[in-house]
């Protein structure tokens, strides 16, 4: 079956990003397809590259990154959520004249159209927040 996953919450603040990650891994393990990961609202922090986890805790951002790359997933952060929260791609940062960037290269910035498109092209959309 074709799934899309929407993540509304930042890692660590609530459990839901971790649940979403676990669920996504299981989906793939069970042979299902993920059409898109969509990070909305505080969920965009899951795609941040400027994070450091303590040695004895998991880095959710790194785990997402690996999952996306290994399985070649389409991963989108909502543009209006991301820019407001400082999750910027290199391209976007340059356009705005900012010196740093903070979006992992496994995700791309796009609009809410991609959110609606995910519903239209998936058998199931599962939301975590």
């Amino acid at each position: 079956m074709i799934f899309s996953i929407v993540i509304y919450s930042a890692p660590y603040t609530t459990q839901s990003a971790s649940t979403a990650l676990h669920f996504s891994k299981t989906l793939i393990g069970e042979g299902h397809k993920i059409y898109r990961l969509f990070f909305y609202s505080d969920g965009v922090h899951n795609a941040s590259s400027l994070t450091i986890a303590p040695q004895d805790e998991k880095s959710l951002q790194a785990e997402w990154d690996t999952l996306i790359k290994v399985n070649k997933l389409d991963s989108v952060v909502c543009v209006s959520s991301a820019l407001k929260r400082g999750v910027l791609s290199n391209e976007e940062a340059q356009r705005q004249g900012l010196t740093g960037h903070s979006l992992r290269d496994s995700s791309e910035i796009s609009g809410l159209g991609q959110f609606i498109d995910a519903y239209i092209h998936s058998d199931r959309v599962i939301s975590f927040g």
């Binding site: 509304y8 909305y40 609202s41 809410l112 159209g113 959110f115 609606i116 498109d117 239209i120």
Partner: peptide
């Protein structure tokens, strides 16, 4: 922000003529 997120998503859906 939930109320706003919901509205923004619905407005986006109208673009798809659904």
């Amino acid at each position: 922000d939930r109320a706003r997120l919901c509205l923004d998503a619905a407005l986006a859906a109208t673009v798809f003529e659904q």
